[in-house]
Amino acid sequence: MNAIETKGLVKKFGDFAAVAGINLEIKEGELFGLLGPNGAGKTTTISMLSTILKPSSGSASVWGKDLLHDKDSVRKSIGIVFQDPSLDDELTGRENLDFHGRMYAMEPGLIHERIAEVLKLVELESKADALVKTYSGGMKRRLEIARGLMHKPKILFLDEPTIGLDPQTRRNLWEYIRNFNKKDGITIILTTHYMEEADFLCDRIAIIDHGKIIALDTPEKLKEVLGGDIITVESTDSNALKKLLEGQVFVKETKLFDEHLNVSVDNGGKALPKLIELAQKNKITVDSAVLKRPSLEDVFIHYTGRTIREEEASDKDKARMQVKVGGFRR
């Protein structure tokens, strides 16, 4: 059985299609990544799959249940960690988990048992009875993940799980996430705009841009598409260099960007000296040449012609920051 299947899923806000027709088949037990820049439609997709947003058109099934007509069954089979914090920080960690358990109609005895289990899982036992507002960012994130796991969901959605966390905490979270998937067999769908996160964690990745999936495969296969290594060359005359290299046997492909030239080769170590020698013979100055194994970043550039980068904070982000700084509460 597929854990998730979508057919032509679309979400429009007015004229703007945030998600413009997504077809997905995510297998049971998979750790699946949705990778794309901010505003690509990742969160909107997750919001629809978790029943928060109603799709404008298309259909989907989650754990065999119809997304549009059997919302309650869908809700019971999924757990979700949202991009924005969604804990009640005037309650303790334990109370947040208890609230969750009761909302999911769990038996009081079972709630008690599961709270102990999930707290242990994310190593928050010692802070369980402290108010959430005293937690650090990483602890809050872990508590949210624990909460998402409380009712033993079949599928766990993680929307940008490590955004805003320090590298150390991020690494730890990756380990947790991997364990839930590999040891407990929970199907996990995560969104991220961090290449290394997707590369490290995911079995398969869908690269999403402007609301559409532009590539979908395992990280290895995605990178293979680029073929071998990439030499990034900065030169005073990139055009001439490009022409020169295109005829060479050791060069597979060249791609010109504003400030540099990307040269795909099979064996970067051998190709680099050849390239520089060739350039010198033809009186083309090479300012710098960098050799690297292709990363998902390069895959993204290959498909979109752009780099993934954090765009300017949107209005909502700004408002969010103001609220956090101003500390407005009722």
């Binding site: 928060i52 809700r75 949202f82 909302m103 609220v323």
Partner: peptide
């Protein structure tokens, strides 16, 4: 009206995905 705050910044989502 405080539901707006919960809607915009968090906890309401947790409530809305529950099977309730």
């Amino acid at each position: 009206i405080s539901v707006i705050w919960e809607k915009q910044f968090g906890f309401l989502k947790e409530i809305l995905v529950a099977p309730v």
